[in-house]
């Protein structure tokens, strides 16, 4: 449904020597990265929920803007359902729904007026596609006569989703729909996306929250304008091909500074109530020896166990290995 090949965009003039955008060339990458000096490439199948996962400034919005035909790429090809983002932009605009990261509905129109406006722009009516938005719309219906500017964050987000869906798009683009949203509303929102997927809509969604990666069919981990990896969340976790350990003690901050002084330890990072670490050489590391070292160093209630990595562990490992 979405086909992206060697996409490259630099917001600086190419002769300036500076780079900000996507597909930065000439950088050392590890073998798991798909593109090499040729921009970024990926594809999304029909009715797939594909996630772009990465921090602010990684290039997520640039990809969205190119695919929704709002800006032109410098190099590379992107097609949506066979339509080219540069040549067939008028056709594409009828087929996509786009919810930008910043709330961009009309603040002075009411909930209902906004929805009617967007339906009219796409030459349709609310009635015609009501089925698609019903589940989401009923939650904001009690406020249908309230101006959009007066809605709370969670309600604005739901209205924006309704407006992006009202013309029954084939592909839905959601740029950071859950940023700044609390964990409860975030879970609710992802539930809505799962439902839309079952109706055959292809969804490209971006998020800075690594824990949301597991809710996507496939994800691309992105940093500094390049992909670190593209795969299913399960496979990305499987590719974390080293031992990951978790350690706790009664003095967590000291534990972190202590771990950094051990030569055998490669990386160590706080993860909620424990610290995750990797070791340089598997054969030189003994759990029991390490435990006695910590106990001798004044730590109590030491708990060490081998754990399975999460997406965030993978992201950090990949971003360390890749010179981006």
């Amino acid at each position: 449904m979405i086909d992206v090949k060697n996409l490259y965009k630099n917001y600086y003039p190419n002769d300036s020597g500076k780079f900000a955008g996507i597909g930065k060339p000439g950088i050392k990458k590890n073998e798991s990265v798909l593109s090499e000096d040729t921009g970024i490439s990926f594809n999304v199948s029909e009715a797939e929920l594909f996630g772009l996962i990465g921090p602010d400034g990684a290039g997520k919005t640039t990809i969205f803007r190119i695919l929704t035909t709002l800006i032109l790429p410098d190099k590379g090809i992107a097609t949506l359902g066979g339509l080219d983002v540069v040549n067939d932009y008028k056709e594409i605009r009828k087929k996509v729904g786009y919810m930008p990261g910043r709330f961009s509905l009309y603040q002075d129109l009411t909930v209902l007026e906004n929805l009617e406006f967007f339906a009219t722009v796409f030459n349709t009516t609310i009635k015609e596609n009501y089925d698609l938005i019903k589940d989401i719309y009923v939650q904001i219906e009690p406020f249908k006569n309230r101006r959009a500017g007066k809605l709370s964050g969670g309600m604005k987000q739901k209205l924006a989703l309704c407006c992006a869906l009202i013309h029954k798009p084939e592909i839905l683009f959601l740029d950071e729909p859950t940023t700044g949203v609390d964990p409860v509303s975030r879970k609710e929102f992802w539930g809505m996306l799962q439902k839309l997927k079952t109706q055959g809509i292809t969804i490209l969604v971006s998020t800075p929250y690594m824990d949301e990666a597991a809710l996507c069919d496939r994800i691309a981990l992105i940093q500094n304008g390049n992909f670190l990896n593209i795969d299913t969340p399960e496979n990305i976790v499987k590719q974390f091909n080293r031992d990951l350990w978790s350690v706790k003690s009664n003095q967590m901050h000291h534990l972190l500074t202590d771990l950094r002084t051990f030569d055998s330890i490669d990386s160590s990072f706080a993860f909620g109530d424990s610290i995750h670490f990797t070791v340089k050489h598997k054969k030189d590391f003994s759990k029991s020896e390490f435990e006695s070292l910590l106990l001798a160093g004044g730590h109590n209630k030491v708990e060490i166990r081998k754990i399975n990595p999460g997406i965030e562990d993978c992201f950090m490992e990949l971003s360390k290995k890749t010179d981006l």
Partner: peptide, 16 residues
């Protein structure tokens, strides 16, 4: 919300 949108490594450095 000091760490919103920040990459995971920087987020941890920030907490330090």
């Amino acid at each position: 919300e000091p760490t919103g949108g920040v990459d995971p490594i920087t987020r941890r450095n920030f907490w330090e």
